[in-house]
Amino acid sequence: MGVLSSIINGILMGGVYGLLAMGLTLIFGIMKIINFAHGAFLMVAMILSYWLWKIMGLDPYLSIIIIAPLMFLLGYLTQRFTIKPVLDAEKDVREPIGALLLTAGLAVAIENFILMVFGADYLMAKTAYSGASINISSLSISVPRLYAFVTSLVVAFLFYQFLIKTELGRAMRATGQDRGVALLMGINVSKVYSIAFGIGTALAGLAGIVLIPFYYAHPSVGAVFITKAFIIVVLGGLGSVHGALVGGLIIGLIESVAAQYMTATWTAILIYFAFLAFLLLKPSGLFGSRYEW
């Protein structure tokens, strides 16, 4: 693969990273919680999408109609029945850490549940377009990655419009900016949290669905992605929606181009070092989140 091809394919993958990171940054921006289960939710959607394809022959992109609402519901209920009680109990604690530990625990529980039910196999929905590529002279662009990229951008755009244009989106931003005053505006903050967690989870799910035609799913695949998502979110500025997308594209690009010249291990090392160096120079990230929401 030529350098230009790897640049393009890296950016395409970066769009998916961006979508995943957006969900993470949404939950952080509004609830101030770091969701360690984000990768596990992505994995659940990948596995579900795979089996819908395998058993019913449903194209992963069509399975969005079923899985996205399901993931929203899963996130909504997770916040309502597990995170909310912990947050309520720690309301007056100066350094609440319960919710953070809880999401880490959820990640382990979800991974093991999936392992128990679906086994540890590596699964990929080998659709008709899975191996397809667009070739223009020496340039080769992966078709499933292109689909994934376009879908990610469309979802990111719609999500952003929702945040800035709708009543509920405005209430979410208000809650992210000042939770106490949001209560005084008559916003049911606890419900807003549930919806935000639901949307964040659905975004992780969408990222998982667009990956399944070209990326192998297994119970611990989430760990690979959540690490990248954390880097992206911090790189873009914690809580920044634009930052998540831009950060995703940057990481996708570095990863893909570096892979042309070094082994995967060295690529990972390079990304972490680049990340650390960047943090030393600009700790608040590309788009410091102070002015977001």
């Binding site: 208000a174 900016q177 000042d178 005053v181 005084l184």
Partner: peptide, 23 residues
């Protein structure tokens, strides 16, 4: 709950303004 009290027309202007700064 606070949102139910607001719905009844009991409204507070909090100390220190507390606007939504980025809006």
């Amino acid at each position: 709950e606070p949102y139910q009290i607001v719905e009844k027309g009991v409204i507070q202007v909090p100390e220190g303004r507390r606007l939504f700064p980025n809006m």
